[in-house]
Design a protein around this nucleic acid. Sequence first.
DNA 1: AAACCGGGGAG
DNA 2: CTCCCAGGTTT
Length: 367
Amino acid sequence: MPVECREKIVDERAPSPIAAALLDHYDTHARTLAWRVPPQQRKAGVLPDPYRVWLSEVMLQQTTVAAVTGFFNAFTSRWPTVEALAAAPAEDVLAAWAGLGYYARARNLIACARAVALDHAGRFPDTEAGLRLLPGIGDYTAASVAAIAFNRPAAVVDANVERVTARLFAIETPLPGARPQIRQKVAHMLPPDRPGDYAQAMMDLGATVCTPRNPSCLLCPVAEFCEARVCGIAESLPVKPPKKARPQRTGTAYWIELDGQVLLVQREGKGMLGGMRALPDDGWSARRNGNAIEPVAGQWTQVGAAVAHVFTHFSLTLSLALYRGPQIDKVAIENLSGACWWPVERIEEAGLPTLFAKAARIAIQHR
DNA sequence: AAACCGGGGAG
DNA sequence: CTCCCAGGTTT
């Protein structure tokens, strides 16, 4: 990198002109999102409901705005308050989460709602440290709820903020090693009067302008301060560690239908798709292929390579086997762990994760 | 520090 | 196809 690129563009001791420019841009270009208060109210100093901020932040963990919006609206319509969510049966909440992924979030969501309702009289802690103690709330979520819902001066660092900050200061240290430096920069620029808007302004910029590929530097409100842009290296930042190869696994799921009902199981509480309803399967996992052993003896019809599905750390080719009889002894089959019969006509309401929802769709076509 | 944990949209 | 997303928990 040329030496002149190392010169600081901004005097870090003064109130940050970067933050000021970000806030100005946010005031006119903020995204309209379901969990935000309307601009009119926001400018009048109205803060959003902490329950809605928390719920949105948990849903948004490693998940795009587009994927979250429908789930957020469904959850807040059905459970308008943290007390309502805390009082809901866990299986209802897990079923409502089906399709959103990372199901440990849903399990922690329930635990957190109940902790807030029972241990905190239904009020979310209003400090970063207090929030950080709750299940499913890590450094990022604690900071974001503290800043956005309570206007606390917390440094909010998500993947957007990492990218924006790495570029602004031309930080070439690979992630995650660069995080302490990034956090320091974010904290140093933080405007004490508007921490929540500052956090959201950074995230909006990362989502709409300072994008991973083809950033729109010509439209960027802080382009004049951006060291990476000056050096022509914006698109190459932040530097990320190399990804690992994804193993390919095979497995089988089993469709056992009798009298208009299909046999579902509830998966073990932890691990892959933990706690979710599912079709019985042959024990496939990220570590190994399934054993292809049918759960009960009988006549089966194979639907080979029915579903191709990609998880974070492995790919799965799921075969499907349909039971053809003879009539199953219901008492015997119900000995399968977590087994229950579910009406096929209401399969959409079972809350199957996407993998099994795909398999069910194929099974219904082939029965 | 590294592994584990979903799913979908963008390019 | 590859990349990445308002990360947290566990080992």
